[in-house]
Amino acid sequence: MQAVSSKVHSSQAGVHPGLPALVKRHASSSWRKPVQQVDLPALEQLDAALEKHRGAVVLDSFCGTGRSTAMLASRHNDALVIGVDKSKHRLDRGPEAPDNCLFLQAHCEAIWRHLVAREQRLLAHYLLYPNPWPKPGHLGRRVHGHPAFPFLLALGGQLELRSNWQLYVEEFGVALHLLNQPSCVALVPTDTPALTLFEHKYRESGHQLWSVAAKLS
């Protein structure tokens, strides 16, 4: 029997009051953290794949085992679909990659910045159940609170983030709005295939699943 997944609990009752100042501060500066040695092999793989493909690119950030990446590769069969996760253990548990699929072990923020430096625009970008960091003091660890968030937006394309924590999704939407990117928050339909193991687990546990989508300009 599959274990029941617990819902996200947080003492944060609404959008974090520090979000506007944090998002605007990051937007007015540039994230300059040096490239980590651990990310260099992935960046080289990425460059080689992009030189060979030279077509539409779809990114699946924080892809975990890569189940979602493989499914997205079938959905976007004319694009190069790239799944990125920092955990080799998770990636090693993934499915066999379709021909138009590339898995990279790296920090997603490093991949975003590298793609921006290459002036690579995305067709679509998926962030499916990244860790929401529910404690109020962890705002800076959330995707929209990270200093690399402006690089994510600069990649453009159709963006979708999903989570079983409604507040996290709404807060991401507010961060987009603060940077003049309209978005739409909605429940994820239950009559579509689960893209990730997390999504399957949350559905089986009776959670409502939320998404925020935006066409990045």
Rank of each mutant, 00 (worst) to 15 (best):
Q2M: 15
S5Y: 09
K7C: 05
S11L: 05
P17D: 11
V23H: 04
V23Q: 06
V23A: 15
K24F: 03
A27G: 05
S28H: 06
S29P: 06
S29M: 13
W31S: 09
K33W: 12
Q37H: 13
V38P: 01
L40N: 02
L43M: 04
E44L: 12
D47I: 00
E51D: 12
K52L: 14
H53A: 10
H53T: 03
R54Y: 00
G55F: 03
L59M: 10
L59H: 09
D60H: 12
C63V: 10
C63I: 10
G66F: 06
R67M: 12
S68M: 14
S68C: 14
T69K: 14
T69P: 13
L72Q: 01
N77I: 00
A79N: 09
I82R: 12
I82E: 08
V84M: 13
S87L: 11
S87A: 14
K88A: 14
K88Q: 11
E96G: 09
A97M: 06
D99I: 00
L102V: 03
Q105A: 04
A106E: 03
H107G: 08
E109M: 05
A110V: 06
R113W: 06
R113F: 09
L115P: 11
R118V: 05
L122T: 07
L122K: 13
L123C: 14
A124F: 02
Y126V: 03
Y126C: 09
L128M: 12
Y129G: 11
Y129S: 11
N131I: 02
P132S: 07
P134F: 11
K135S: 07
G140H: 13
R142Y: 03
V143A: 08
G145E: 01
P147E: 02
P150H: 03
P150V: 02
L152I: 04
L155V: 01
L155H: 05
G156W: 10
L159W: 01
L159E: 04
E160T: 10
E160I: 07
V169N: 15
V169C: 13
E170S: 14
E171A: 13
E171Q: 14
F172T: 04
G173V: 04
H177T: 07
L178W: 00
L179N: 01
S183R: 09
C184F: 00
C184E: 14
C184H: 13
A186V: 00
L187Y: 08
V188C: 13
T190L: 12
P193I: 05
A194M: 11
T196L: 07
T196F: 06
L197S: 11
E199A: 10
E199L: 04
R203E: 08
R203Q: 13
G206R: 07
G206H: 09
H207N: 15
Q208P: 08
W210K: 10
S211W: 00
